[in-house]
Structures are given as C-alpha cells and as structure tokens.
Amino acid sequence: MTDVVLKVEHLTKRYPVKKGVFGRTGAYVHALEDVSFEVHRGETFAIVGESGCGKSTTGKCVLRLTEPTEGTVTLDGEDFTSLKGEDLTRARQKMKLIFQDPYSSLNPRMTVADIIAEPIDIAGTYKTRAERDARVEQIMKAVGLDLAYKYRYPHEFSGGQRQRIGIARAIVLKPEVVVCDEPVSALDVSVQAKVINLLEELQEEFGLSYIFISHDLSVVKHISDTVMVMYLGHTMELASKEELFDNPLHPYTKALLDVIPRIRHERIQDKKILEGDVPSPTNPPQGCVFHTRCPQCMRVCGERAPEMHEVTPGHRCACHLFDEGLSAEERQPVMAAALAEAEAALSGAQ
C-alpha cells in the first residue's frame, strides 16, 4: 500500500456571482486555483496564509462539503471526487472534520454521548447498544473527558472541553485523514497548548493524518511536518516544516514569518508588515497574484503567472525569482523600471 493516503491534483473552486434581474453570471470569485499536494500516512500537512486565502475552502473541497469546480481528490487510491450515494458515504468514514468554533459546532439538544456516537450511528458500525456505549467511553477516555460527562449537554462545558467533544466525534470511526479547520483559534492560549498536545497524542495512538489549517505560524511550527503557504487561492510555497521556517524562498512566506514576534538581545524585533490590501478574488491581478504587494516585484511578475519550481529537493516555490529562463528586461525591478521610464519621459520633454 502506498505511503500517500490523500492526493489532491489541480483543485479549483470558482463561485459564480449573479447579476441582474435574471440572475446571470457576471463574474466569478476565484477561491482556489490549481492547488495540488499530497498527504502521507501519519503526517500533519499544514495550510497557512492570511484570512481569505482559500485555506478553509481547500478543506471543504477535499471533504466535498463544497464541490470543486475542477480537479481530483484521491483517497487511498480511489477517486473520491467521482463517488456518489452509498460509495461516497462509505468513503467519508475515512475523512472527518474538526470545526473551528466549538460553541456552534455541537448540537445543544444532544448529550455528549449522543454527539460522539452520531457518526457510528449513521455508519451502523456496532451491533448492540453495549458495543456502542463501550466505543463512546473508549474515545472519551482517549480525549481526556470524564465518563461522568456522558449525559450532560454542550452548554455545561468550557470551550476547551467542547473542542475535546468535537475531536472525539471526529475520530470515533477511526478515520485515516482528519481536516482540522483552525481547531484552536477560538480557545485561550493555555487551552490551545493542551488541545495541540492532545492532537499529537491521538495521531500517534490511532495513526491519523492531519490537514491542519491555521493562520498561526507558531502553532504550525510546533505541530506540522509539511507546510503549504497560500495566497489568494494559489499555492505560493510548499516544503517540509524545517526547510520552510529555516529557508523561506517566496517573498510572501518571508513576510508571514517576519510578523512572528522574536526576542533577540532582550529586545523585541520590529515587525515588517506587508503594504497594501489583499486584492479582490473576483478580480485577481494578472500575472503573479502577489505582485501588487511584493517588495521584490519584477516586470515579468505583472505579465504572466509563475510556475511551481522545485528549487531544492522537496522544496517547491511559485516565484519568478527562481525562473532561470527570464531575460534581463523581464528581471528588471518594477520600481527601477518605473524610474527609468519617468526619467526618459522627462528627458524627452526637455
């Protein structure tokens, strides 16, 4: 059996924008564009980026909670995107989701035991009530929930305890892949550490593979094995955690890492903030989608989109800085080119 449990190829999602009385499609929201990656068994694959970059949309499309416009998702060698009916229901037992908000993701009218047991009730994986209860108790112990909580309701718990209930619900069927959509962003910092440690323990115990979606690079550095950086629905950089944090290549990745607080010589370093706003996904920039904010923008960046280059083994980056086939004119920095054109115009006027 292959080491790759999940393979995503050319995943694209565009939402139509309706206009006019007759609801005709006037434009598209480009949520995802040609995203590809692999998740290996037992690894944590992290997706990072600013809000609105397509992280959560990627997770939803992988799970088919949102149908992708183009692309394929292969789960255990099976084309997950083509499955329907009972085959889809069966395959979904191998992939589960941990939601971001532990307050709104639990049914307030269901007890803890019923919430955790709901996936196995739907899948029908037990024969007797005693077998069902035993499985619920086993998972409650695994996530650190007291068995006395079985018949209590979600409103009786703190945010951290609710997220443990959500985690228990996600792993009760022993899935192969769990999509964690910012699972600790709504929790206090002290609780975040406990939940992250719990996820690592469960991964080791049950052999889980995680797609970990987050904007918090400090958390990603702690839990991830591989990291994919996204911007405006595009993959900017993909590498192992060690390679990405020690040797970032893309200007956007460097900008993200610059805002992590670091203490050196007993002084907090100044943060380098990207200038400008994220462009609208309904009208993304031509060429490289990051060129409107890139401090290293070249003439070619606004003309055509960069291809994904494998700069070093396993370290891929979509940036023209690593395109060896560019001419000297194409490599000309945008600011230098604008200055040269202004000087030429001024000389002509004189």
Rank of each mutant, 00 (worst) to 15 (best):
D133L: 15
R331Q: 07
Q269I: 15
T12G: 05
R90N: 11
A130C: 14
A305N: 08
V5S: 00
E243G: 05
L106V: 02
G144Q: 09
Y231F: 12
D225S: 05
G233K: 09
P295F: 03
A239M: 12
H40V: 03
P261W: 12
R293I: 04
S82D: 01
A344P: 09
E137Q: 15
G287D: 02
P108S: 06
V229L: 10
R293M: 04
A337W: 12
T81S: 11
C180S: 09
A130Q: 13
S104P: 10
S56A: 04
V112E: 05
L198I: 10
E303K: 13
D87Y: 10
S51P: 01
K7I: 12
Y15V: 07
D101V: 12
M335C: 11
A123K: 11
P281L: 08
L202N: 03
R262D: 12
G77C: 07
E78S: 13
E50P: 02
L244Q: 13
P285E: 06
D79N: 05
D188P: 03
L326M: 02
V48Y: 00
Q332G: 13
E307Y: 00
T69Y: 04
V184F: 13
T25M: 09
G144F: 03
E324R: 15
K174W: 13
R264N: 14
I122W: 03
Q192E: 06
T57V: 12
I196Q: 05
E200Q: 15
E343R: 10
V278S: 02
V184T: 09
D270G: 14
V172D: 07
K7H: 14
L339F: 12
Y252M: 04
A349G: 13
D76N: 14
R92G: 08
R41L: 01
P248F: 03
E70V: 07
Q161S: 06
P251S: 08
A91V: 05
A134T: 15
I211H: 02
L173V: 11
I122N: 09
S347I: 06
E307A: 08
K94N: 13
A337I: 10
E131P: 10
P183H: 06
D258Q: 06
A255C: 10
R164V: 06
E324A: 14
I116G: 06
A255S: 12
V311D: 06
K7Y: 08
L173G: 11
Q163R: 08
G52S: 03
L187H: 10
E324I: 12
A338I: 15
S105T: 03
R299C: 06
T25L: 07
K174C: 09
